[in-house]
Amino acid sequence: MENKRRLFLKCACATAVGAVGSTKLIAAQSDTKTDTTEAEVNYALIHDETKCIGCEVCVDACRETNNVPEGVSRLEIVKTGPFGEYPDQYFSFSRKSCQQCDGTPCVNVCPTGAAYKDPKTGIVSVDSWKCVGCMYCIAACPYQVRFINPVTKAADKCDFCKETRLKEGKSPACVAACPTKALVFGNLKDPDSEIVKVLKTTPNYRRKTELGTRPKLFRIATKSGEIKL
């Protein structure tokens, strides 16, 4: 009996120590995460739905620049409508791509660290060599924008053209290609940037913020055309 009780106590202590240890670890991890927001640069994007005409030039530009294989895409324009009576009909367009979350559900679940947030630019990206293709991140992304690249077999998604256009010092392909200038790309840390000015003066919204994702894809709403309760 003595022995059993001692065993039980040992177990209980070990469990307590383990539990405290792991919460410490997680706390330490989130500390380092807030550090990254101290960096000089934190890129974000605005999609102005009032200017978007749904031409999908951005979609093609992205595919070409980033060599995205057919059958998958980093960027889609979702069309809803038509609203109103002929001839005054119109559609509304919404951008479906990585929201570049500051709270990164995809990074938190990745077992190898292949999904990561670049501390210098705040861009969420994938190291395709480290990725084993467990698809945990695809399930964890509430915006359902990640996919397995059929060529690399790794998880893939929009990275603000980090490896292509940004390296050449240019703005992302979709932003440059947009004929109506509906996309604004810039650094949230720079108070003089266009993106900060627009965000400070124009009502905007983000999607699914209640999940703690802190997305950096901001949207300027167009007239909605329907009343949803």
Binding site: Q29, V109, T112, G113, V132
Partner: peptide, 14 residues
């Protein structure tokens, strides 16, 4: 790579 690289915030890794 799952055995070599660890991520303490990932339930799968833990």
């Amino acid at each position: 790579k799952i055995l070599v690289f660890y991520n303490p915030t990932s339930i799968m890794s833990v």
